[in-house]
């Protein structure tokens, strides 16, 4: 009984944390766009949190650069379980257009276990919402 209530609560209240590991801003502004009137994800219970300790889902954009790798890992470790990681945008999925750069390590999955990949360069806000919805279906 309690289990199913908790599962329901988790599905209805996904709080996200956003971290740019080396992206170009394109996906980042689309993530920010989610909060604004046209998309307004608060109606789905999604809040953008400031502290990793409060978040459930880590939204990562961009390829992982050498300098941001350790920071990315640390942020993930600071988040309390249960937690999920989403790779936003083509760069986050695979390194995208920057693949092969000397300072680029590749996609987010080089560093963290990624649960959902949202491709697109940059991906549309609708795609990010769809990604979160799919992730929540997996929680079920």
């Amino acid at each position: 009984m309690w289990e199913s209530v908790v599962r329901w609560a988790r599905r209805k209240s996904p709080w996200v944390l956003h971290f740019n590991t080396g992206g170009c801003n394109g996906c980042d502004i689309e993530i920010l766009d989610l909060l604004t009137p046209r998309y307004d994800v608060e109606r789905l219970g999604i809040l953008k949190e400031a502290s990793p300790r409060h978040a459930d889902i880590l939204l990562c954009t961009g390829p992982v650069t050498r300098q941001s790798r350790d920071r990315l890992r640390r942020i993930y470790e600071q988040m309390p379980a249960p937690k999920w990681v989403m790779a936003i945008g083509s760069c986050g999925c695979s390194g995208g257009v920057f693949h092969g750069g000397y300072n680029v390590l590749g996609g987010i999955d080089q560093v963290l276990p990624v649960d959902i990949y949202v491709p697109g360069c940059p991906c549309r806000p609708e795609a990010i919402i769809a990604g979160i919805a799919q992730l929540l279906d997996m929680v079920e």
Binding site: V5, V6, S13, T36, E42, G45, P80, P82
Partner: peptide
């Protein structure tokens, strides 16, 4: 939310937030 041109959360949102936080790692 309405004053900011948005829709805002559904009625059960505070409850869901609370239960989720209670069940999270501390």
């Amino acid at each position: 939310a309405r004053l900011q041109g948005r829709v805002g959360p559904p009625w059960f949102q505070p409850l869901a937030d609370l239960i989720k936080l209670l069940a999270k790692e501390d």
